[in-house]
Design a protein around this nucleic acid. Sequence first.
DNA 1: CAGCATCCCCGTTGATACTG
DNA 2: CAGTATCAACGGGGATGCTG
Lengths: 125, 125
Amino acid sequence: MRTIVESSGLPADVYSAECPTRQVLNHIAGKWTILIVDALIDGTMRYTDLARRVQGVSQKMLTQTLRQLEADGFLTRTVHPTIPPRVDYDLTELGRSLAGPIAALREWTEAHINEIEKARQRASK
Amino acid sequence: MRTIVESSGLPADVYSAECPTRQVLNHIAGKWTILIVDALIDGTMRYTDLARRVQGVSQKMLTQTLRQLEADGFLTRTVHPTIPPRVDYDLTELGRSLAGPIAALREWTEAHINEIEKARQRASK
DNA sequence: CAGCATCCCCGTTGATACTG
DNA sequence: CAGTATCAACGGGGATGCTG
């Protein structure tokens, strides 16, 4: 089934450098996107929850990635005007539909890590 | 089902910065990896085939990504000692098992591009 | 054809400090 | 708590030229 991109009238094609799908794919393939979306599958997380869960991410990249995901419509950002402040992040319906394929990728990686490490050892000889 | 990483004895966990799965996930999330693996689903491709198919990739990044994928055991590189030279790239069994989740991601992107562009327009107002 | 080597830029990322 | 601001560094990535 072939999608027509409404903004251009052309068929969606990630292989085309100019197709908007390419940019979206690059967002999804960002260093932190997969981990963040995957972390939100089980429900709402606060900023600090995510920072603790996604080990190694800096504040800057966490914020930056979250804003990008929000702009793409994958998650919502809810600010509670309390003191101290509290911000909740939740997947949108669109985000949840993306979370499936993303979880599959995470699971694949975890399931095949031993096979990959063996291949690497063979390659380094 | 929980995988134990043989090299460390610890459970596989992409959320841990030190887990080898994290590095593999970062490879998969590389700017060109998804497109290249996806392009190989239908079978053998030569270097120039890939360069033409994956629009926008430079020779350097194409070569670099192919070598990384080879080292990870996702594809094989077969050099035919002919003149002019000819090099075939094929997914390994491991690579084909990865291609499933990757194709799902590409298909998701192409299927939802219009919804995403609408979200972006709302975000930019 | 299928690359490797080199130069070099600039965008991404990280560290650090500060704030409502 | 949940960021923002700023600076510095690193390496991803492109352009060009050359080769077996």
